[in-house]
Design a protein around this nucleic acid. Structure first.
Lengths: 113, 113
DNA sequence: ATGGCTGTATTATGGCACTGATGCACCCTA
DNA sequence: TAGGGTGCATCAGTGCCATAATACAGCCAT
């Protein structure tokens, strides 16, 4: 099946949040949705959301003001995008590429879709 | 991290075997390695290997001769390739494509690597 | 027929990741 | 100063995964 289907919730949330930061849905300096709010919206547990937020704190992409909320730091979007791009090219793309080759698919053609 | 890294062993084995069938490492009519042999080679448990083989039996891609071994049926490689291709295009490619777009990557360029 | 190879069923166990419920510490505003 | 909003720590439950030890059923060459 799709490897992304049976993925832990907190990782899916993490990807979703990362995409939102990169796309500017949560601009730099803005406050992220509270763990409870996002949990209610996504139908998940607050702790699961907190776990998804955790990595962004460790990487210094968001700043925690205890009792207040979590804020996107300056330059977070670009730093995040660079890191994701590097990780994608180094870890995922080689496998995807060889896999497509095995299946007789051409990335250049599919790109035009 | 890489979604394929923390995947269950039996699924990684399954993908590895599927690739071998498609690539003709196990040609049609040939016998697959015994569960014990592959388990020893891969450092896994025979039952884990059996679980990896399971799906191929259900899909009718391999034929079990009890007491003898498991054999790749005729047309298995092409059928497997078609199924994998369809699944890839429908389930995985859309996500990959949008993700690359977000990261500012062009599939057409990367294809030339 | 016997030994050695196949796959398979059974049961049990340990580990680990994910999820969940509760309560606490902290900060701002009214 | 009271209330409601934050994040966070602790503990517990659950289910999947992997392993293990046996035992069984079938086939084949010697």
């Amino acid at each position: 099946m799709n490897p992304n289907a049976n993925r832990p919730v907190y990782l899916k949330l993490r990807d979703q949040i990362a995409a939102a930061i990169i796309d500017g849905v949560y601009p730099e300096g803005a406050m992220l949705p509270s763990v409870r709010a996002l949990a209610a919206e996504q139908g998940a547990n607050p702790l699961t959301v907190a776990k998804a937020y955790q990595q962004f704190q460790n990487d210094g992409l968001v700043e925690v003001q205890r009792g207040v909320g979590m804020y996107v730091v300056r330059g977070a979007a670009e730093r995040l995008r660079a890191a994701e791009r590097e990780a994608f090219l180094r870890q995922e793309w080689p496998e995807i590429r060889s896999r497509m080759q095995r299946l007789g698919l051409d990335p250049a053609e599919l790109a035009l879709t």
